[in-house]
């Protein structure tokens, strides 16, 4: 045996809780067999989860680093690994390695700023970590606005936490929207990009966007109209990944590897990359 650490060799993780969020999203709580967090991370970082024999896949760590007990992953069912994960029961072991990627600059560029979070669908997963981090260190940040939209009411991930906790915090305003009318829904109806424009945020804050490419594209246009500069806007990229450490050659956009130079990018950094994502 070789006595050095190998980044590709994972640790064992135990699933201790499974929450059904939407028809195709579940949130899994993961700890090591001795009940600890597998490793420390920063908001925006990811981890490789795997089911031996099925495969490995990359997921945002959706829990905040300030949670000292466990990590959480919100996972959308869409293929082999994710389907298997969805079929798990509590107590199942999986493997976990990480943390991967460059986090959001929560302790530098974000400090003292008003924050605007904009998410669509499963895009809330990476943002939830930052939101809860900012809520934990509340006095380090200014006002917090959260715009979150999904196809329907049932597709809003973390709905309970949003309504029961986030919306009740001082200085935090939550703006929810769904794509189409629903009888039991009394909130806003419409797509995220339009809602952001309607809400007419003043461009004196940091904006963080996460969601499907089409939502990102139109929301960015809206933010520019509102007067946001590229250096105030952050988003995350998602490309196919195998190693997570900049070696397998799979996730590059131009000379940048999303797994290590991203997944978090500031808009002016993104502008320097070739259009291939």
């Amino acid at each position: 045996m070789i006595d050095v650490k190998e980044p590709l060799i994972p640790k064992i993780g135990v699933v201790t809780d499974i929450r059904i969020d939407t028809p195709d999203v579940k949130t899994f709580r993961v700890v090591t067999p001795d009940g600890k967090k597998a490793f420390e991370h920063k908001p925006g970082q990811c981890a490789m989860l795997s089911v031996p024999g099925v495969g490995e896949a990359m997921f945002s760590i959706t829990s905040s680093p300030t949670n000292e007990e466990y990590m959480e992953f919100s996972i959308k069912k869409c293929g082999c690994v994710t389907e298997w994960l969805h079929s798990m029961e509590v107590g199942q072991q999986i493997t976990i390695r990480g943390p991967y990627g460059r986090p959001f600059p929560v302790d530098t560029e974000f400090v003292g700023k008003d924050m605007l979070f904009i998410a669509g669908g499963i895009g809330l997963a990476p943002l939830r970590s930052v939101i809860n981090y900012c809520r934990h260190y509340r006095d380090r940040y200014g006002k917090i606005d959260i715009v979150y939209g999904s196809r329907s009411m049932q597709d809003l991930v973390d709905y309970k936490e949003i309504i029961d906790e986030w919306a009740n915090d001082a200085g935090v305003t939550v703006h929810l929207t769904i794509d189409r009318e629903q009888p039991e829904w009394t909130g806003h109806v419409g797509f995220v990009p339009n809602y952001v424009k309607e809400l007419g945020f003043s461009p004196d804050k940091i904006a963080i966007l996460c969601g499907p490419p089409i939502m990102i594209k139109f929301t960015l246009a809206g933010l520019t109209e509102l007067g946001f500069e590229k250096t105030q806007v952050y988003t995350t990229l998602e490309l196919r990944m195998k190693c997570g450490i900049g070696k397998c050659g799979r996730c590059n956009v131009g000379a940048k590897y999303v797994c290590k130079d991203g997944p978090v990018f500031r808009l002016d950094e993104l502008d320097e990359l070739p259009d291939e994502y």
């Binding site: 031996p52 024999g53 099925v54 495969g55 490309l239 195998k242 190693c243 070696k247 397998c248 050659g249």
Partner: peptide
């Protein structure tokens, strides 16, 4: 460039690394 793949032997699972190619159409498919 490389890929990582699991193989179920019946007695356990072997994880392999093998060469991959950016010239393949499924290399970056999501």
């Amino acid at each position: 460039c490389y890929d990582i793949k699991d193989f179920n032997t019946g007695h356990g699972v072997k994880r392999f690394r093998c060469w991959d190619s950016c010239m393949y159409s499924d290399f970056t498919k999501m």
